[in-house]
């Protein structure tokens, strides 16, 4: 299913989230199972499936990484569920350094300062990669699409780091 079509939005990386939210609610107002509770069993089942599709589509477009993956999938490049872990040595080095930084937090004299530092680094890298991702996807040709796929793989590392950092932050309370 083409999620952009479902929400009647242009198939591109840049997206008006407010518009997406408005159209999502319009669709749910019509297809949510609550609107079909008095229907036959089959109608109810279909409403559940339809509403689940709409929720999934919304979820996929709302998050930049999933949106980019969906866009690539529509262009014939599937990267979800892949087990490719090859990365440039420089990138892996940077990841290791960030991981070391995270590992130091719990024993640090001033953990908050280290958390802030790690957070800043992660946010900076994420922003830069998202910018690169946007221009690669905007180019809309196979060569740039493969570049975009590489950027998505890198971004996944940063999203994971961010999650871990949030977990560490919680245990600090």
């Amino acid at each position: 299913m083409n999620y952009f079509q479902l929400f009647h939005l242009p198939a591109q990386f840049e997206l008006d989230l407010t518009e997406l939210g408005t159209r999502y609610l319009e669709l749910q107002r019509q297809f949510h199972p609550d609107k079909h509770a008095a229907g036959s069993e089959r109608d109810k089942l279909m409403a559940v499936q339809q509403a689940a599709n709409i929720n999934d589509a919304y979820h996929s477009l709302k998050q930049p990484l999933l949106r980019a993956e969906h866009l690539l999938a529509l262009r014939g490049l599937k990267i979800s569920n892949e087990q490719r872990s090859f990365m440039e040595p420089a990138f892996l080095m940077q990841q290791m350094e960030l991981r070391e930084l995270l590992a130091e937090i719990s024993d640090a004299a001033d953990p908050d300062a280290l958390i802030d530092e790690a957070d800043q680094q992660i946010q900076q890298q994420k922003k830069a990669l998202l910018r690169q991702l946007q221009s690669a996807l905007d180019a809309n040709n196979p060569e740039h699409d493969h570049q975009a796929a590489d950027i998505i793989r890198k971004l996944k590392f940063f999203f994971k780091l961010q999650q871990e950092l949030e977990l560490i932050e919680q245990t600090q309370d």
Partner: peptide, 25 residues
């Protein structure tokens, strides 16, 4: 009846999604 109308129901669902969006447009 459900079996006979399965395809009909699917077509209607398809149309109603499209018209929901066209209505918006």
């Amino acid at each position: 009846t459900n079996h006979i109308t399965d395809e009909f129901a699917a077509r209607r669902m398809d149309i109603s999604i499209r018209s929901a969006l066209q209505g918006h447009k």
